[in-house]
Simulated assay, not measured.
Amino acid sequence: MPDRQRADARRNYARILSVAEEEVAAHGAGASLEQVARTAGVGSATVRRHFPTRRALLEAVSRERIEALRVRAHELTGAGDSRDALLEWLGDVVAYCVSARGLAAALAYDGTAADPVHENACSAALEEAAGPLLRRAVQDGAVATGVTVTDLITLAVGIVLATEHHPDPGGRADRLFRLAVAGLSPQR
């Protein structure tokens, strides 16, 4: 009997996750957990058992994107100019967050933990992946000491969340990201 329950639980998890991916793609981070349960054909308690918080559900939905960003950071580590490599990766973070509704919310910090990066798995994975990129850029003098991966992810997430309702969220987010990187001073 326990084996059957585990198999049922695995099927429920897969069904809930599949439905959640569709709901988040359609409605963003505010997708209704009750609608996910109804569409998946399970009770709300079953959804909550697998995903006790909205963040847990968003993290699960975003897992593949986070893995792609992790792999990309690894590819860029040690490649070319350290500042360019870091900024290329951050640009990828912004682009992924714009294209994957709900990813920015999964990365957002709610300030409840003493160490906000480790309060969720998505941010922890990105911190670990981007650490070598940032350390190299700091060692090369291309990025100021004291800048953290948390700072950079917060900046990217803030830009994405601020532009998600713009008619061209990708273009607007990219412009604001480039402005943040360049600063307000005129080019010399």
Rank of each mutant, 00 (worst) to 15 (best):
E64A: 15
D110F: 07
L57K: 04
R49M: 14
T112P: 02
A73C: 05
E67A: 15
T39P: 00
A121Y: 04
A56W: 03
H50Q: 08
E64V: 12
N120I: 08
R49H: 15
A60D: 04
E59N: 11
T46G: 02
N120S: 15
S99D: 15
G30R: 11
N120M: 11
G111S: 04
A85D: 04
P116A: 03
G91D: 13
C122L: 08
E64R: 13
D81E: 10
R72M: 14
A40K: 00
Y109L: 08
S123L: 09
H118E: 08
E119H: 10
A73Q: 05
G41L: 05
G30E: 12
G30M: 08
A106F: 09
L86H: 01
A45C: 00
S123K: 10
G41M: 04
R63K: 11
R38G: 00
P116T: 09
A113K: 03
A40C: 01
H50F: 04
A114G: 06
H50E: 08
P52W: 12
D115E: 11
V42E: 01
V117H: 01
R83E: 09
A124G: 08
A45D: 03
S44W: 09
Y96Q: 15
A60F: 04
L57C: 06
G41H: 02
I66H: 06
V36E: 00
R63V: 12
R65Q: 14
R48N: 02
A79G: 01
R63C: 05
A108H: 07
R38I: 08
H74T: 15
A104V: 11
A56H: 13
D110Q: 06
A68E: 14
E88L: 14
V47E: 00
T39F: 00
T77S: 13
R54E: 06
A113T: 10
T53W: 04
A106E: 10
D92H: 14
R63A: 15
E59W: 04
A68L: 14
F51H: 06
R54V: 09
S32Y: 12
G78A: 07
E119L: 08
V117M: 12
D115C: 06
T77D: 05
V47C: 01
A104W: 04
E119K: 07
G102H: 07
E34C: 00
R72P: 07
R70L: 06
G41T: 05
V98Q: 09
A100M: 12
L33R: 07
A95W: 13
R101M: 13
R48S: 06
V71S: 09
C122E: 04
S99M: 14
G80V: 03
L58T: 03
R55P: 08
V71N: 07
W89K: 08
R49Y: 14
G91L: 13
A124N: 05
D92W: 09
G91H: 13
L58M: 05
E64Y: 02
E119D: 15
V61I: 08
R70K: 13
A100P: 00
A31N: 02
E67P: 02
G111I: 12
V94F: 10
A60C: 06
C122H: 05
G30H: 11
L87T: 10
E34H: 06
R83Q: 08
A95M: 13
A100N: 10
V36A: 01
A60R: 07
A31E: 02
T53I: 07
V47M: 01
G43H: 01
D84H: 10
A60Y: 03
S123E: 04
A104K: 05
D115L: 13
V94S: 09
A56L: 11
S99G: 15
E88C: 10
D115V: 15
V94P: 01
